[in-house]
């Protein structure tokens, strides 16, 4: 075991990345407000989501079909979001 790299190294590194993103996001919320604050905090949330999906949920090593399934939900949510936004953004 000691000679080979620990199998837990990748997930521990990912966890470190997650905590870093959390701290940056919390700190940024003190400096930023309004739209810029929202954009920055959502950016960090997306980073966390990507890390969890890719490593903890092992999407990186999955077959293409599984990845397609994983994206489907977000794609359909985007459909709902975009068309509803199209209504609200153009209301008189």
């Amino acid at each position: 075991m000691p000679s080979t790299p620990s199998p837990f190294r990748p997930v521990l590194l990912v966890f470190a990345g997650l905590m870093a993103a959390l701290m940056l996001s919390a700190a940024a919320s003190y400096g930023l407000s309004g739209t810029s604050g929202t954009v920055v905090s959502l950016f960090f949330a997306t980073v966390k989501l990507a890390l969890i999906f890719a490593f903890f949920m092992k999407l990186r090593e999955q077959a293409g079909l599984v990845r397609l399934f994983a994206m489907a939900g977000f794609f359909w949510l985007a459909i709902a979001g975009v068309l509803i936004a199209a209504d609200y953004a153009t209301r008189g």
Binding site: S25, A26, S29, Y30, L32, S33, G34, G37, T38, S41, L42, F44, A45, K48, L49, I52, F53
Partner: peptide, 14 residues
């Protein structure tokens, strides 16, 4: 992951 989004949307609005 759901919480990861709830956190900024609910707690971090200034």
């Amino acid at each position: 992951c759901v919480w990861v989004f709830l956190y900024p949307l609910l707690y971090l609005i200034r």
